[in-house]
Every structure is written in C-alpha cells, then in structure tokens.
Nucleic acid binder design. Sequence first.
DNA 1: AAACAGGCCTAAA
DNA 2: TTTAGGCCTGTT
Length: 271
Amino acid sequence: MQYIQIEKKDDFDPVKIFECGQCFRWNADGRGGYVGVAMGRAARVYTESGSIFISGGEEEYADVWRGYFDMDRNYSVLRKRLGTDDYTARAAEFGAGIRILKQDRWEALCSFIISQCNNIPRIKKIIEALCSAFGDELSFEGEKYHSFPSAERIAALEPEDLAVLRCGYRAEYIISAAREVASGRLDLDALAGKSCSEALAELKKLRGVGDKVANCVVLFGLQIPDAFPIDVWMKKALKEHYPPGFDPSVFGDAAGLAQQYIFYYTRSGQE
DNA sequence: AAACAGGCCTAAA
DNA sequence: TTTAGGCCTGTT
C-alpha cells in the first residue's frame, strides 16, 4: 500500500484526534498508528518525525482525507485564541493536536443517536455490528473492513432487523432517522449551510435526537463551528471551572473546538 | 445485586 | 419550563 507523506504544519496528533471522543471507527494499530474506516474507505494514519503519513495516494488524499482531517484550517492559530480564561487555556494546551474531523453527515447522525446513554466500548461495538451486518465489505492491507451503511440501506430495514446490534430502544430511532434522510425529508447537506440554531432545531425534530446528540451532529457532521455539545463530562467541567450561567458563545466560532479541548482535558482526569 | 452509562421521551407540576 | 421515571443492554 502506498502512503502519502505530508509535512506537519500545525496541530495533528492521531492519538488525540481519534481518542477525543468525536469518532468511533478508528483504532490503535499497535504500532503507533491508527486504522479505521471513513467516507467508504479503510485507511491507516501515523506520524513520524514531523510528517503525517496517510495510506492512499495523492488523489485519495485530495478527494477524501484532506477534507476529512480538515487540513486547510490552522488549528494552532485557533487554539491560541482560546486563552481567554485559565482553565480553557490549560485545556487547549493539553489538547494541542486535536482536529475536528469532517465526518460523513449520516454516519455522524446515526453514531451519536447510538451513543446516548452508552459508554464508548459499547458504542463502538454496536457501530461495528451495524457496519458488518449492513455495510459493504472493504479490503485493506490484507484485512477485511466494512463501510458505514448508507441511510438508504438502513431505511429499508425494520427495527427488528437491528436486533443483532443489541442497541435496544435506539433501533427505532436509527430506522426513523434513516428514513427521514433517505426520503429527503431531512436534507443534511442543506442543513450544513444553515446557522447552528437552525440546524439544531431541524435535527431535534427527529425521534431520539435531543440537545446533546444534535450538537454533536452539527459539530462533527455539519462542521458548524459554534456548536457546543454538553454531556455529563462537560456539565461537570462547566460547573467546576466556569461561572454559573457561563455562555460558551464567548468562544465564538471556536466554541466547538473549545468544547473538544475541555472535554478531552476533563475526561483525561488532568483537572 | 443494584446502579450506572458520553440522553431522550413522556407525563406531571 | 423544569423535574422524575422509564427505557434496552452490558458492565461493575
């Protein structure tokens, strides 16, 4: 397999990118890199002496990974803007290397529906089961992988068909979201051009999509940068380190990135 | 064994 | 508009 080498210009740390909780299909490969499936392709990513290596050639990079890894945004510049208060500054410093992935919109929606009231190992397990049951088989460096099934594919199923996933009451949410997307009643591509609050309102019309899931989809799937998902970890961090009634809109367009730094920092137990 | 996990929905104040 | 309980399932 061919790899493309990119000189690292700013923040890019595979461990942080893939372990900061934004995605579920990348795993450490045991030799310092990560393998995963995204945008219908399996890939491997690692860094070595100041360079980033991504499987696939120039063309695949231009078509897929450059956008997926948000390579045309300078994260170190954004990060340094987040020094407005001490805690955020420490979190940003600690999280240097995180980038917000430009994930497939439907995959983000479906994945974060699954994530509700679940821990990461189980989220990953359910998503892998979904992909191996209904995704397309991919071959990469001698191993088999599966793409994330399309909304159209899932829309054709019934909740009972998802029993193999063992995802409980979420099955019904997945099917109905898939049908909204596949039918075109919910146009995720069009939503990506809307404001954060408009996109949130649309997404929250879906069954099983509340504030937290909607914010994750808006940030990780629609790349609307001022989304600010608040889960139990964020609630704790906000309560302990920010004034009551703190409004994350003070971070402006970097709110989503600030959220990732704070989330990653507080979850790492660094305090 | 009982409680909880990276929420959401519904019913009831 | 805020709050309590229930929800599938797996783990501790």
